[in-house]
Amino acid sequence: GQPAMSSAEASAARGGEEERCRYKGVRRRRWGKWVSEIRVPGTRERLWLGSYATPEAAAVAHDTAVYFLRGGSLSGNGAAGLNFPERAAAAYGAGSVAPLSPRSVQSVASDAGMAADAQLVAARDREQLVSGELSVDDMEILM
C-alpha cells in the first residue's frame, strides 16, 4: 500500500493551499492571511474565529475561545491547549466563569484577535519608522 502522508505533504499535494503554524488553532492562507477556528467541545461544530494579519493575533483569538468554551479553567491541565497561557491568566484570571454560547465565544474571540492584530501591526509600523525602513513615499501614504 501507499505510505501515509504527513499533513504537510497532504497540503502540498493539494497545491500548498495552507501552511500550518507553530500556534495551536492557526493556519496561514496561501495569500498570506492568518486564520483561526476551533471545534466546539462535544460537537462536530467548528467556530470561525477570524482572519488576521499576524499569526499571534489569530493565536490570541484561539486562546480566548478555548478559555470561554472551557469555562475559564486554566489551572492544572487547563492551560495546555493555550498558545499564551500567561496572557490568558493575566487577561481573564484563572477563576472559573460560566461557559459562553458558541456565538458569544465567536464574538469575544474575534474582538480579542482584532485588538491584538491592531496593536501588533501598529507596533510593527512604529518599529519600521524607528529603524528607517520606510521610504519617504511610504511616509506620505501613512500620513
Rank of each mutant, 00 (worst) to 15 (best):
Q128C: 12
Q128R: 15
Q106R: 11
A94E: 08
G95P: 00
S104I: 01
M139L: 13
R126D: 09
G132P: 12
A98K: 14
D138A: 10
P102A: 05
Y92T: 01
Q106E: 11
A109V: 06
A116H: 04
V108C: 07
P99F: 01
D137G: 11
G113I: 03
A90V: 01
V97N: 01
A98M: 09
E133R: 15
D117H: 05
Q106S: 08
A91H: 09
A98Y: 10
P102L: 03
L100R: 15
A122E: 14
A112G: 04
V108D: 06
S101E: 05
G95N: 04
L120E: 14
A115L: 09
A98E: 09
S110N: 01
E127F: 11
A98I: 09
L120I: 15
S107P: 00
Q106I: 04
V136N: 03
Q106D: 02
D125L: 15
A115E: 12
V130F: 14
Q119G: 01
G113S: 04
V121Y: 14
E133P: 03
Q106T: 09
P99S: 00
V136T: 06
G93T: 06
P99I: 00
P102F: 02
S131M: 08
A98N: 07
S96R: 13
V121W: 12
S131R: 14
R124D: 10
S96H: 08
S104Q: 05
V136I: 10
S104D: 04
D138P: 09
D117F: 03
A118S: 11
A112S: 10
A94V: 13
A109Q: 05
A118K: 08
L134G: 03
S107R: 13
Q119E: 08
G93A: 02
R124C: 06
M139R: 08
D117S: 06
G113D: 05
P99K: 01
D111S: 10
E133W: 12
P99V: 00
D125F: 13
Q106C: 02
S131A: 09
P99W: 04
Y92A: 00
A122Y: 10
M114D: 00
R126F: 08
R103I: 07
A98C: 04
M139D: 05
A112C: 05
P99A: 00
D137T: 13
V121D: 14
Q128L: 12
Y92F: 07
A109R: 03
L129Q: 15
D138F: 10
S96A: 05
A116L: 02
R126H: 10
S107E: 13
V97W: 03
A115R: 11
E127N: 11
A112M: 08
M114E: 02
A118Q: 09
E133F: 10
P99N: 00
D111T: 11
R103Y: 10
Y92S: 00
D138N: 12
V108T: 11
R126V: 07
V105H: 07
V130L: 14
S110M: 01
E133T: 12
L129T: 11
R103M: 09
Q119F: 02
V105G: 01
A116V: 05
M114S: 01
A90T: 03
R103N: 06
D125V: 15
D117E: 10
V130H: 11
A109S: 04
E127P: 04
S135T: 15
L129C: 13
A90G: 01
A123L: 06
L129R: 15
A115P: 03
